[in-house]
């Protein structure tokens, strides 16, 4: 049965060896224990209410055996687990470094040449990759099942992990530390490509001229606005962008405000300032310092275009 996810990193083989050893020693000990128990249930069934039973209070040798043997096996497993873990935590010096910043609810990848991607990580096959993790808001956890790697992204701290992919293909990237409403939607794809394709990817000019609306659309997806704000009129965590520009909206604590350029700018930079009535507080991250002027303008243009 194919119960394990595909192994697609150099850790896979060692990891699966430890796993199989622990699995089979577990199955054997369970069979001994549960099997013995079930055998005794039938073998020593009560015949009459006056049955006499053996008066066995203890057996030091047997008890020593079933404390000592598990101890040795457990220590062996711990040592083996540590050996494999040590490889996972010994960082190669020649690795490709990718900065990954987690936020509610998206993964932002930044490559050394400034190229950024959201929700997608592109790495070359057969080359070590080090992921440098941090988080903008709460704790997230970076998990690629097929690579057998996982590490928490902690706000205010840097953490890291590394892997070397062995097969081309697309793999799942999950967030495994509960991070609020859209935790289960904080997914991503890890795309393992041949070195040549990776070089081509890196050479693409991400800053080619695009219209502000087009740039805004990209940002809308990359900065995870899309997780909470729809463009089809359906309110999610926050108001939908459809037809919002120029509209008069009620805000929490009384009063109305017109959703003009200034209001939208303020809401991006400091979301807590004026919350629209009926929507939760403290859900949106603060983008102060995360976006430059061009990007904010592009976003406003994009919102304007959602009629």
């Amino acid at each position: 049965m194919k119960y394990m996810p595909l192994q697609a990193s150099t850790f896979g083989e060692d990891w699966d060896l430890v796993w199989n050893f622990v699995l089979w020693s577990s199955i054997i000990s369970c069979i001994i224990l549960i099997g013995g128990m079930i055998y005794f249930i039938f073998r020593y069934q009560r015949k009459t209410d006056k049955d006499k039973t053996a008066y066995i209070t203890h057996n030091t040798f047997a008890e020593f055996l079933w404390s000592f043997i598990p101890l040795v096996v457990f220590m062996g497993i711990a040592a083996w687990g540590w050996e494999v873990y040590k490889d996972m935590r010994t960082f190669p010096t020649d690795a490709l470094e990718v900065n990954v910043t987690a936020q509610k609810w998206a993964w932002n990848m930044t490559y050394s040449n400034g190229r950024t991607l959201t929700g997608k990580l592109v790495v070359p096959v057969g080359k070590p990759v080090t992921i440098l993790l941090t988080s903008k808001d709460v704790i997230h956890s970076f998990f690629i099942p097929s690579f057998r790697v996982k590490q928490d992204a902690v706000p205010g701290r840097r953490s890291k992990l590394w892997f070397q992919a062995t097969r081309e293909g697309n793999y799942h990237l999950f967030c495994t530390e509960y991070c609020g409403m859209n935790h289960s939607g904080m997914l991503g794809t890890v795309s393992v490509v041949a070195q040549a394709d990776f070089d081509a990817f890196m050479a693409e000019n991400p800053n080619a001229e695009v219209s502000p609306i087009e740039l805004g659309k990209q940002l809308y997806q990359q900065q995870a606005c899309i997780g909470c704000h729809t463009t089809d009129g359906k309110p999610l965590v926050g108001p939908s962008f459809q037809g919002i520009f120029g509209k008069s909206v009620k805000i929490k604590g009384g009063g109305t405000v017109t959703a003009d350029e200034n209001y939208i700018r303020e809401s991006i930079l400091n979301p807590a300032a004026k919350i629209v009535e009926g929507f939760p507080e403290n859900q949106m991250p603060v983008y102060q310092g995360a976006l430059n002027e061009d990007q904010i303008t592009a976003l406003i243009e994009f919102i304007k275009a959602q009629k």
Binding site: K52, I56, P70
Partner: peptide, 28 residues
């Protein structure tokens, strides 16, 4: 990780001792 493995030992002792208690008992 190593200390955690130690918890397994007293737990194993209990399991084996319960099963041994059933040995040659009069089970209902």
């Amino acid at each position: 990780s190593f200390i955690t493995m130690l918890v397994g030992v007293p737990t194993a002792i209990k399991m084996f001792n319960w099963v041994s208690t059933m040995y040659k008992g009069s089970i209902r």
